[in-house]
Design a protein around this nucleic acid. Structure first.
Length: 531
DNA sequence: CGTATGCAATCGAGGTATAC
DNA sequence: GTATACCTCGATTGCATACG
């Protein structure tokens, strides 16, 4: 008898995540469900329908071959892990097309056979136990994380972080092929209204019902096609929708841009009068709906009121969320917002109370960017404005004290956030000194690291704690926190003296001369950051 | 006899491969 | 380049069959 087939267990959709200690919860990764059979040196990756996918993911197969088993059947999901920690179905398909943006990871969540022992009749709790001894929590083949109990919180957190939803599994149940209720999934759904601009002829009842609805949203005064909705109605409802749409029939396509291909030529068009409520999982990169499902007609809204609803992060509404801000990596404004949301806990303490100088790029990096010090511009309310006396007049500055304020900066298309070395309660008394190590083009990164260590040594000898900050470029900042007691001139004098002392001792390596010429192989110690 | 379950159909986006 | 077929993911309906 050959090895048992890969017959995956699948989850039933429910509206609320279950609670209780008998349930564990995992992230719904939104990748491809894949079984992995290891037998001696042979590894095979198998799709949900039993098709061999080993050739499509050779690096996963190679990593699986190194697992410490003689034979095994693993179950899991292959997904693309984005740098912000989310996984993306879209990115996975791009990855199969050769576009590597993010890391391909096989998240393993079950073990059905181990070294000849059939584990399929063993409770999930024990299978998880065996699995955790074999697959580690890092690497290209990695253990899927899970949480026991409190499904509601796991679900809310998963949605907040931008995942598709969660899968909840009974710990006390054996494996069971096919759809069961001992595995359930809860999805983070989106729902909104769309204008109906047409429909397709159904294959079964031509002339009597509809196949799918063609829907769109208003964008810049035009109706933009957003996809087809072909499920969520019964046959009877499809017939009644046809009856409602038939009087609205027109020869002219109501969408500003005709849908591509066959659809654009063969769909039935209607005057854009009816509004449909549609549930869907997400917007695709092309601005279409993924997994759309009809919920009903909205009789209470006018078509011109229907637009794409702006996503919000931490309550800050983002315009142009899909705009690509980092073209090389393909990251959008929404990606940037989610990143700041994730790191806000660490980022905000360094921003709190500090007047800001901002680099804004309304197009993208590489487009037109400009530095902004004063805040005589529109900014969301979450940002605080302060007035600080300058040489001649009062200057108004922005300060970000909260995670919401940080997201407000993203909404303003801010790419770089530069802070003052003082806080607004005492603008004349710096609470830190920053010494910038700016390497010439011929200087290696390790030399910059050595420079930072040298400075830190000198500071420690003077009784001052210090830490380094990467700059995003090739240099490094050495930051010295201070009690806000000395004024600017004293801080500047101190950092200038320190920089010159280092320069005197190591003339071949360091300089305090700003002129570019002559310092290709040297590190400029820039003390003027404390001015 | 009603309910549960499995399976095929019919829809969706987005991808590949292949034929023309 | 365009069209077709088929693969992944998904939702949902409707029917046949199994079960208590």
């Amino acid at each position: 008898m050959g090895p048992p087939l890969y017959r995956p267990q699948v989850a039933t959709l429910v509206s609320e995540a279950p609670d209780g200690e008998q349930w564990l919860h995992e992230i719904k990764y939104g990748g491809y469900r894949i079984g992995c059979r290891v037998a001696r040196e042979r590894v095979q990756l198998i799709s949900r329908k039993g098709i061999d996918w080993t050739r499509d993911f050779p690096e996963i197969a190679a990593a699986a071959r190194r697992l410490p088993v003689r034979s095994a059947l693993f179950d899991g999901e292959i997904a693309v892990l984005l740098p912000d920690g989310r996984t993306s179905f879209q990115a996975l398909q791009n990855s199969l097309a050769g576009d590597r943006r993010g890391e391909l990871v096989y998240f393993v969540f079950d073990l059905l056979e181990l070294d000849g022992r059939d584990l399929s009749q063993v409770p999930l709790r024990e299978r998880k136990g065996e699995l955790s001894g074999i697959v580690s929590a890092a690497g290209q083949v990695r253990l899927a994380q899970h949480w026991i109990g409190d499904g509601g919180s796991v679900f809310r957190e998963a949605c907040r972080l931008g995942f598709e939803g969660i899968v909840s599994k009974r710990l006390d149940q054996p494996h069971h092929a096919g759809r069961t209720t001992s595995w359930v999934k809860t999805k983070c759904v989106r729902q909104q209204e769309f204008v109906i601009g047409g429909f397709t002829e159904p294959s079964h009842e031509p002339g009597e019902a509809i196949g799918s609805l063609l829907v769109g949203v208003n964008e810049g005064g035009k109706l933009r096609f957003a996809g087809k909705v072909g499920t969520g109605f019964t046959r009877a409802l499809a017939r009644s929708l046809r009856a409602r749409l038939e009087p609205l029939r027109t020869r002219e396509c109501p969408f500003a841009e005709r849908p591509p291909g066959w659809l654009g030529r063969n769909a039935r068009w209607v005057r854009p009068r009816l509004i449909a409520e549609v549930m869907f999982s997400e917007w695709t990169e092309g601005g279409n709906l993924r997994h759309p499902s009809f919920r009903g007609l909205r009789e209470d809204k006018a078509p011109h009121e229907v637009g794409r609803e702006r996503p919000a992060v931490l309550g800050i509404s983002l315009s142009h969320p899909e705009r690509v801000v980092f073209p090389a990596e393909g990251f959008s404004k929404l990606d940037l917002a989610r990143y700041h949301d994730r790191v806000a806990e660490w980022e905000v303490p360094h921003l709190r109370g500090r007047p800001l100088t901002l680099l804004r790029c309304p197009d993208a990096i590489g487009g037109d960017c400009y530095f902004m010090k004063h805040s005589k511009v529109w900014a969301p309310d979450a940002l605080r404005r302060v007035r600080i006396p300058e040489k001649k007049k009062l200057g108004e500055y922005l300060i970000a004290d909260t995670p919401e304020a940080l997201l407000a900066l993203v909404q303003m298309d801010v790419i770089e956030i530069h802070t003052w070395n003082t806080r607004d309660e005492a603008v004349e008394k710096p609470d830190r000194i920053v010494i910038d190590l700016d390497p010439g083009p011929a200087v290696s990164w390790m030399q910059v690291v050595e420079g930072a260590r040298l400075l830190r040594g000198a500071l420690t000898a003077l009784g001052l704690a210090s830490f380094v900050k990467t700059t995003g470029g090739r240099g490094m900042h050495v930051v010295v926190p201070l009690a806000p007691e000395r004024d600017w001139t004293e801080c500047l004098a101190f950092s200038r003296d320190l920089a010159r002392a280092v320069e005197r001792q190591h003339r071949a390596t360091y300089t305090t001369q700003y002129a570019k010429a002559g310092r290709e192989k040297k590190i400029l110690i820039d003390y003027l950051r404390n001015n």
